[in-house]
């Protein structure tokens, strides 16, 4: 009797949070899934189930190109960020004295407390026509005319890498400091040089840290609208930009829903591919 009332009480405590999540997260996702198999005809909504939106996605090069661009940018950003972050994480863990490490890490994440929109805008100041880089190159005589790096895929990638290098440095650093020094010593005692020690001992043991950071980078990067919209311009669109066009310009919610479902499917695939390492981290 007492046990029963305790259990009922526990459900009572959890109920508001669960109901909120159900009403404003699960139900909207379900409605969105439903919309994705409906269709907009003219200005009205046709509620007969159809795969027309998904077929349009595959048939119109506009959408497929968006997906392709997104995948290319995301993979480029993820790989570049890992390559840049790993040495920095290693330097922080191995070369910086222990009491300075905390401050070095805090300093590294400091720029990330600017607002996300403002951070992309700041890169515009650096990269645009007449901006800091263009000005620097002209002052030093490397170029004669002012150049603009903004409104290009390069700018999008720079903006993203700026954000994710630090994220990956943190996850890889967390992994490196946990690595027992004795493992490295053991490998060296057994005759491995620094390169073999790294490839066969350090790298496999820090793989979970890399994969957690890489997965986060992939998910956050492929779903982001702000950075490509501010820095990439309108020359080539990424998938979230095509999605926003459906909402803002065409008010085609069914098509936008279908794109969102495809975006979710891509993220789920990425999770399935990384889950081996993501679980390893938790254990």
């Amino acid at each position: 009797m007492i046990a029963n009332s305790r259990i009922r009480q526990a459900y009572g405590f959890a109920a508001p949070a669960v109901l909120w999540t159900a009403a404003f997260f699960l139900v909207p996702l379900a409605i969105m899934a439903l919309y994705s198999i409906w269709q907009r005809v003219g200005m009205s909504l046709k509620t007969v189930p159809t795969l027309a939106n998904y077929i349009a996605f595959v048939e119109k090069s506009f959408f497929l190109k968006g997906l392709l661009n997104s995948l290319e940018v995301t993979f480029t950003v993820t790989i570049l960020s890992i390559l840049l972050a790993y040495p920095l994480a290693w330097i922080l863990a191995e070369k910086v004295p222990a009491r300075w490490q905390r401050i070095a890490l805090l300093a590294a994440v400091l720029p990330f407390w600017t607002s996300y929109v403002v951070r992309s805008y700041s890169w515009l100041l650096v990269l645009s026509d007449g901006g800091v880089i263009s000005n620097f190159l002209m002052q030093t005589g490397l170029t004669q005319e002012s150049i603009s790096l903004a409104n290009s895929r390069t700018a999008t990638v720079i903006g993203f890498v700026h954000f994710f290098v630090m994220l990956l440095t943190l996850t890889i650093y967390a992994n490196l400091v946990q690595l027992p020094k004795s493992y490295i010593k053991a490998a060296q005692d057994l005759g491995a040089g620094p390169i073999r020690t790294f490839i066969h001992v350090v790298l496999p043991l820090t793989l979970p840290g890399i994969m957690v950071g890489a997965f986060l980078t992939f998910v956050l990067c492929i779903g982001d609208y702000i950075t490509p919209q501010i820095l990439g311009g309108n020359k080539e669109l990424l998938l979230p930009q095509t999605l926003m066009l459906q909402i803002q310009r065409r008010a085609d919610f069914p098509m936008a829903s279908a794109i969102a479902m495809i975006l979710m499917a891509v993220v789920t695939l990425a999770y399935a591919a990384c889950s081996r390492w993501l679980k390893l981290e938790r254990a």
Binding site: A14, F25, I31
Partner: peptide, 27 residues
């Protein structure tokens, strides 16, 4: 199961959460 439900929104990008809400409020 309840923990899974409560933490589920963390696994979905803000853009998709925003779209779901927009469509629902609109509907």
């Amino acid at each position: 199961a309840l923990r899974l439900v409560l933490t589920a929104p963390m696994t979905v990008s803000y853009l998709i959460i925003a779209m779901g809400l927009l469509i629902t409020f609109n509907h």
